[in-house]
Design a protein around this nucleic acid. Sequence first.
DNA 1: GTTCGAGTGACAGAGAATGT
DNA 2: ACATTCTCTGTCACTCGAAC
Length: 308
Amino acid sequence: MMTDIAAAFLAAKKKYDKGGNALAETLSVGALCLETLHRSATLRRFGMFSGPPKIEYWVAEDGGALSRPYRPDLFIADLNTFREEARDFAEELRLGKSDPARFDRVVYTTVSAFCLCFDVWKPKSRKTPGTFFEVLMASAARVRFPKLAMTKHIPIKDIPVAATADALLDVTGDERDAAETFTGDSVSTDLVLTNPETGKGAVVPLKITTRERIVQPFAHQRILDSAYPGQFASFLACISEVQRDDNTGTVKQICVPGTVALFQKHLSKLNGLYYCDIPVRYARPDLGSVIEVKPLHLLFEDMAAHVG
DNA sequence: GTTCGAGTGACAGAGAATGT
DNA sequence: ACATTCTCTGTCACTCGAAC
């Protein structure tokens, strides 16, 4: 059964890589995952996030293998309901306006169903769920913004290194010459949408979890700020930040609010953090006053506002 | 073939919270 | 007051798959 899911995903990715619109395909993969979970796994309560507020999490289980925790209140468990919601979601994207709750729930369910399948039946494959999230959101963006150019890389051309980086090192003349003539630089991200008319671009790093890589979007934004001042804005899009604690039967939200605030104040400014499932710690006003943390359905609106 | 990036389990140190 | 446990954050090691 995992071969079916993997094959369906591969076909969708292939179409997306070739520049096609793979939204319908990725949503179908989500439905296939949901169907497979109902047929071959048990969906059951796992435990609570300690809060406040307390939040209930469920897991998928098969043959002793447990999935990551998911939120049943955001997860469309019924297959027929999901198919209907997914169809409406795609239609609304085409029209350029989305129902907020539907947007978050469809994305959350599609990605979570895929993750749960991989957690239970192909746990060694760590990278694939993140790629799936990327293909889904990029395909959705392609439908929502047909006029914007879509890439994954931003070339950094002909910018003297001495002018872009802070003068932290007192390099010798030879070293500086070597650095200034290096021209192969490029910022590699998940998704970049650029308006050909205004030249403005939205950079969207897409991550299942930011843990361990949180510095990356800030570093990229900093590079872009010095290479193309005022042109690019970053919108960090994530699903959730949770981890099972099997010792206590609880769910932990893995957050680094101090680090995020520090980077936002002193490294570079992201336009915002966007979550399907905003971690409790990130929803608090002390962090919100430093960086905006919003539900995922506002992502496309905010991107549109930036690129014009 | 090799290299590289993404995601995850595990763990360590600091400091806070709790127990005795 | 002291000891123990918990929480928060940062880091390492590892695997897989994509890219070269």
